[in-house]
């Protein structure tokens, strides 16, 4: 057993789902299983896990509540499992502090990619001053955005929105979180502002705004800024 591998906690009441998640994540780390919220909290007594995958339908407790409690004392990445057509539940989990979600049923590769992205973010962080994606280069120290070396003009709000998205690249940000971060409290109900400005950003940054590669829509939930996976 290689002890350097990160510990991944899987909180899910269905043993069969735990089984295949464990099998799928063998390459990513050591998997610890928990069938309930109580078992999940127990798993933190030893060496803490590096990431937790939490099913929102737990037998003993509301999954969103568990996330809220974990967030009071740990910043470990949280990946939520939820049903489709349960957008409200996902938004609640993300607002409570979850970092990403997977809709059941999900493929193994999709899950591995999410887990890998969350673990990597944990390691490096997103502190680089210069970020590049596609043919776009954002220099946060000089507040400049260029496409193929040509400067692109962004309005202050567009720049702030891009900044917030880049700071949490790879993670899902709910409409509410983005409105709070960019426009400030009291603007949480102005979803159309956000959508219009996202549209502006796509016009300026994406090659085909109708089919964005980086600024992705999570319908009914929010947005995700997807930096390209570094070639493995």
């Amino acid at each position: 057993m290689n002890d350097d591998r990160p510990l991944i906690l899987v909180v899910e009441d269905e043993p069969q789902i735990r089984r295949f998640v464990r099998a799928a994540l063998e390459d990513e780390g050591r998997v610890v299983e928990a069938g309930s919220a109580a078992e999940a909290l127990e798993a933190f007594t030893g060496p803490g896990p590096a990431l937790a995958i939490i099913d929102l339908g737990l037998p003993d407790r509301d999954g969103v509540e568990l996330i809220r409690e974990l967030r009071t004392w740990t910043m470990l990445p949280l990946l939520v499992l939820s049903a489709r057509s349960a957008e409200a539940e996902k938004v609640a989990a993300l607002d409570a502090g979850a970092d990403d979600y997977l809709t059941k049923p999900f493929g193994v590769q999709e899950m591995r990619a999410r887990v890998r992205a969350l673990l990597r973010r944990q390691k490096v962080g997103a502190g680089d001053t210069v970020i590049e994606f596609g043919n776009i280069r954002v220099d946060r120290a000089h507040r400049s955005v260029t496409r193929d070396g040509v400067a692109i003009h962004l309005t202050p709000i567009e720049y702030r929105l891009l900044g917030v998205l880049l700071a949490k690249a790879g993670r899902v940000l709910t409409h509410r979180q983005l409105l709070m971060d960019v426009w400030g409290p009291g603007h949480a109900e102005r979803g159309h502002y956000l959508r219009i400005y996202i549209g502006h950003l796509r016009q300026k940054l994406e090659a085909d705004p109708a089919r964005p590669r980086f600024l992705l829509t999570e319908t009914g939930i929010g947005y995700r800024f997807q930096l390209e996976e570094p070639a493995a």
Binding site: I17, R19, F20, A23, A24, K104
Partner: peptide
């Protein structure tokens, strides 16, 4: 229905 389908998709994909 979702639970067995999730297991089925996951195991087959694995």
């Amino acid at each position: 229905l979702r639970t067995p389908l999730t297991v089925l998709v996951g195991l087959a994909d694995a």
